[in-house]
Nucleic acid binder design. Structure first.
Lengths: 129, 129
DNA sequence: CTTGACCCTCCAGTTGCTGGAGGCCCTACC
DNA sequence: GGTAGGGCCTCCAGCAACTGGAGGGTCAAG
C-alpha cells in the first residue's frame, strides 16, 4: 500500500507519515520504484499513533506505547502509568488555562472598549504584580 | 541597567530578553563595552511583555499591544478586541483539553493496571473510531 | 594578578509537523 | 508516441518561543 493510500486509511497527512518514518516510529518497505509500501500491521500502527496523538500523548510516549503494544509480556500497569501521567499534565494545563481565562475575563470586563484611549487591559498589563 | 539587572527587575530570563531584542520588541542602548543598557521605559516595556505573555498573548500580539500602549490616540476598543480574541482561543483550548481529559479518564478507569498484559488503554487506541 | 561572575555573539536543538523546490514515475488520453 | 495530470521521492526551510552551550571579552574584589 503506498503512502497516499496509507494516508486515507489512517487519516494522517502524507507528510506526517513520512515524518513518523523519519523518526523511526514506522518502517515501511520500499517498492522497486522507491515508493514506500505499507503492510496491514504498519497501517494498524499508524492508526494507533493517530489515536494516541489525539489522546494527547507526545510522540515519545507514543513510541513507548507502540513498544508496549508489541510486547506480549507487558504489564498493563506500565501503560496505565503513562496514561495517568498524561492525564495529570492535561489537568495542569486545564487549571492554568482556567486561571488565565479568569484573569482575562476580569480585565476585559473592566475595559470600556470604546474610542477613548483609557484601557483597563493595558493598565493591568502595566501595573499588575 | 545591564541585562542581568533587567532580568531580576522583570522576572524574564536573560536569554529571553536578548531574544526579545532580536525580534525587535525592545531596543536597548549599548554601553561602551558592548553591554546592553536598559532605561526605565524599556524595563517597563519588558514588564509589560512579561505580563502580556502570562496573559496568553502571542509575541506578535504583544508587539501590537506595546504599540497600542505607546500610542496616545489608541482606541481601547482595539485592545479589547485583541483580548477577546485571545479569550476565545483560551476557551477553545480548555474545551479541547476537557474533552481529552474525559476520554483519557474513561480509558484509565477501564484498565486494570496490574501485571497482566491485557490493557483497555491499548485496546482503545487500537480499535477506537 | 587571578578568580569568578558577568557580559557578548553565534549556532544548534526543542516539538510536531508543514510548505515548497526540483525531479522521477505512472496512467490515461489523443 | 507524446503529453498532461497526478502521485511519489528527497532535501531544505520555517513555524513559536525560547533554551543550552561553545568560545571568548569584561569587570570588580581580594
Amino acid at each position: 500500500m503506498n503512502i497516499g493510500h496509507a494516508s486515507t486509511q489512517t487519516g494522517l497527512p502524507v507528510k506526517t507519515i513520512r515524518y513518523y518514518e523519519e523518526i523511526g516510529l514506522v518502517a515501511p518497505d520500499r517498492a522497486e520504484n522507491g515508493y514506500r509500501d505499507f503492510d496491514a500491521a504498519q497501517i494498524a500502527d499508524l492508526r494507533f499513533l493517530a489515536q494516541a496523538r489525539l489522546m494527547g500523548f507526545s510522540l515519545d510516549e507514543c513510541r513507548t506505547l507502540l513498544a508496549l503494544e508489541a510486547d506480549p509480556s507487558r504489564h498493563s500497569r506500565d501503560v496505565r502509568a503513562l496514561a495517568e501521567q498524561n492525564l495529570v499534565s492535561v489537568r495542569e494545563k486545564i487549571a492554568n488555562l482556567q486561571a488565565l481565562e479568569a484573569r482575562l475575563t476580569v480585565l476585559i470586563e473592566q475595559c470600556h472598549g470604546d474610542e477613548a484611549p483609557d484601557c483597563a487591559i493595558l493598565d493591568g498589563l502595566s501595573h499588575e504584580a
